[in-house]
Write a protein that binds this DNA or RNA. Sequence first.
DNA 1: AAACTATGCGCAAACGTTTGCACAACGTCG
DNA 2: CGACGTTGTGCAAACGTTTGCGCATAGTTT
Lengths: 334, 334
Amino acid sequence: MHNRPSIKDIARKAGVSPSTVSRALAGSTRVSRETRERVQAIAAELGYAPSVAARSLVTGRSQTFGVITPTSDPYVAAVMQGVESACISAGYRLLIASTGGEPAREIEAVRLLLAQQPDGLIVLSSRAGAAYGSILPRLDAPVVFINSWHEGERVFSIATDNEYGGWLATRHLLDLGRRRIAYLGGPEKGRSHRARAAGWRRALAEAGVSFDPDLLWPADGSIEAGRLAVERLLAGPAKTRPTAVFCYNDLSALGLMAEAQARGLTIPGDLSVVGFDNIPFAAIAHPPLTTVDQRKREMGGLAVETLLAALRGEPVASIHLRGELIVRESAGKA
Amino acid sequence: MHNRPSIKDIARKAGVSPSTVSRALAGSTRVSRETRERVQAIAAELGYAPSVAARSLVTGRSQTFGVITPTSDPYVAAVMQGVESACISAGYRLLIASTGGEPAREIEAVRLLLAQQPDGLIVLSSRAGAAYGSILPRLDAPVVFINSWHEGERVFSIATDNEYGGWLATRHLLDLGRRRIAYLGGPEKGRSHRARAAGWRRALAEAGVSFDPDLLWPADGSIEAGRLAVERLLAGPAKTRPTAVFCYNDLSALGLMAEAQARGLTIPGDLSVVGFDNIPFAAIAHPPLTTVDQRKREMGGLAVETLLAALRGEPVASIHLRGELIVRESAGKA
DNA sequence: AAACTATGCGCAAACGTTTGCACAACGTCG
DNA sequence: CGACGTTGTGCAAACGTTTGCGCATAGTTT
């Protein structure tokens, strides 16, 4: 259709210069109240919308935040909601790139986003770890990592205290009398996976249970990984089978529960299960899943606030949040 | 930091003009192979990344697609994955705005996105319906609606044949011998909700079951709505209770099953349930949920292909996809 | 040898803003 | 009445690209 109206069109129609229009639209006091209102009226009438491209070209800011997400599970979706609502109320737009969960594509995604020159970057559940070492310093936009941990000049992190969460979950299982407690792992490279494992080991150690490497099951946090774990569970002789499993996340816990039940195991009778995240499905699982809550929306909101503060040059710091244990029925009655 | 290198920096270092650099980087044949390679080498060395702002200012294209999503459930997440992967392989970036499921915010979100001048727009599960009437014609970017239906000059739709799906689900229930079949609805304004209800009614009519408005339960497709529906289910005398419910989506079906079981009902013994969407959790529900599949990723991919084709000026058309019934156990054995 | 055609490159305009600076008009103060 | 501040406006540069056009140089055809 006709080209979109520009500031010049307004200027012509209002009989002033483009500069004045720009100032009037920005609400500058350096322009008389009268012309300001006239210009604004004309702008509205013409359906004027500023060209973000032109604006960011000159200001050097894009009013945009970039987000890198792995493939979107309910956990990610929840923190994204926090990110989104905080962004729009701050007047920022959101540019997203997803990695499909592959570390290799993650750093590629960062490059892609960077080309758009976002004013800040949010990285969710990074699995690329060290690969950021080379890219972070070259960056002039602030970055915040959610659920993985990096710190630096203008890089911050927001994370659940995973070690504590892992400890909490395991502790609960121990309190219920379980001793052979397996840990069904998450993405190998993920910081959160390692921290949860560490919490598990610490709780075990504190309870005087010696560490058995056979109970550390590598997995990736998917539903499917949970199902597959049942093979391993059933592999050994019944006597030495674990009587409980703490899962990296609710997704794999749910998969594990479903498959275990399909194989005839009762939960929590034969096997106690606890998850991590507290996604919506945890509450309606059968039985309802005991899990460690993460304050997901809050983390998302904090991430953008951190970016905003960093952009304003205010001092900011990384944050550790503690989630609480949500006791339901999958581990046994409390 | 130092400012990002521009095309001029490369030009200076390579001893050529900015124009040549631009052409060399674009791979134009109008520049000698030798200089082209030299320029590209220097660009790589300097870590050059083009300014999208500048580029879109002159070309009038942003190489960006905008997406409007309601709040992100597993269904939405799945189609988004299709959208994302298609986008990145086409070299487009993705700008998203979410509405929190509120129709009012939806049209606001569109405005926000439009300000960024995306080359195309994708609207997921719109609930704003008629509100688009005024905005669509003023738009010069092509638009595609997923899972709602609009058509026009440059506006297309990709949707599951919801009427057919509703018919399929109800038909299945009927085949299992159920006669009193309720329909637990979705978002009131949603096109898909109405179509599924229509399919339900048609199957009922074809089977000679007279329509009972008391079995059309308004809801919104959330887990919570599913739980709440159990109240209604249990409200009447046991004799006249529905023996099956077809749910707008898996989310509400899952909520309903969990709550019904908590109240002592057996599924599918006392109550048959079928959902819609086939989200990952449907397979591991207890019992596994019979549902109508939607080709979610495919829809996402088709949406961006449609946009791409429209942008190239090729003739394109809206698409109806048919999903199949996935028979599991929640309705009874097939 | 003249007349073309390719090939490779540079000039300069244009895209739509923002913003430092200059300037005019009009007080106001000493 | 001159110096000076205020207020409102315009000029022009700048942001980093892309691209039509022109101009050499070299090669090819008559």
